[in-house]
């Protein structure tokens, strides 16, 4: 990798504005995520953190500003955008596994249909990934037959099957029963340790402390703090961050 390539941030947002009708959900966001960094985005609900995550692969189009992924500006809707999305893995709050396909078919689908990988090779890779997230024995079941934690791990395997450059996690544990949160966080922690570039919107403070390189705190559509997890939890600078932490860490 040349110095210039290394310096190109994986994600770059500059001057990004987004409105939902009259509601200004993202206000002049500037953000750079270097390669290999694990960024956790925190903030009260309605702060725009999920929207921020969804603008990066253009599931939410923006009204102003620019977004670049690995130096390439986000294209408009069409083939070029589909190609870019293939490089950006995404994990959703509601898992969104394809309900009419088995787990292994879910994981194979995009490599076969988007990348043109041969079916048996895609199946081999899919099984390896399912093994990695610990649900290889569930491969031939349908999503509805799995627990939430298993479904979310399958969804992570499905995203990884495209060998993405960066992974976006949009509240990956918020829809899970408490006892299933850890198994998903474990998979994510491993992924972070392996050097994957990650942007994680979450309420899991434990994960932020343990796995994040950087914490971004959002409120009312703005980035209020951008710092290391140690500093953020020990000495938040803004009143809003102190207020937020006070509410979630006291009990």
């Amino acid at each position: 990798m040349t110095a210039a390539a290394a310096a190109t941030p994986m994600i770059r947002m500059s001057g990004v504005d987004k409105f939902f009708g009259p509601l200004h959900v993202l206000k002049n966001i500037d953000l750079e995520v270097p390669k290999g960094q694990v960024v956790v985005v925190l903030g009260p609900s309605g702060s725009g953190k999920s929207t921020l995550c969804r603008t990066i692969n253009r599931l939410e189009p923006i009204d102003k500003g620019t977004i670049e992924v690995d130096g390439q500006p986000l294209p408009a809707e069409g083939r070029a955008l589909a190609r870019l999305r293939a490089e950006v893995g995404m994990v959703f709050q509601q898992f969104n596994l394809f309900a009419h396909k088995t787990i292994v078919e879910n994981v194979m689908l995009a490599p076969v249909r988007v990348r043109g990988v041969a079916k048996d090779e895609a199946r081999r890779t899919a099984m390896e990934l399912l093994e990695r997230v610990g649900i290889a024995n569930q491969a031939d079941k349908y999503p509805a037959q799995l627990s939430g934690g298993q479904q979310q791990r399958a969804a992570i395997a499905r995203a990884l099957a495209m060998r993405p450059k960066v992974m976006l996690f949009d509240e990956p544990t918020s829809a899970l029963d408490p006892e299933m949160v850890q198994e998903v966080l474990d998979v994510m922690t491993t992924l972070a340790a392996e050097g994957m570039t990650m942007l994680v919107v979450t309420h899991e403070m434990g994960f932020a402390r343990k796995a994040a390189d950087r914490v971004i705190f959002m409120a009312d559509g703005e980035v209020v703090e951008d710092t290391t997890p140690e500093e953020f939890f020990a000495a938040p600078k803004s009143a809003r961050a102190r207020d937020f932490l006070g509410k979630i860490l006291t009990h």
Binding site: L59, A82, R85, N96, A110, V114, A155
Partner: peptide, 9 residues
């Protein structure tokens, strides 16, 4: 959304 996020047209 999941399909689009995976790069399907």
């Amino acid at each position: 959304e999941a399909a689009r996020a995976l790069g399907l047209r």
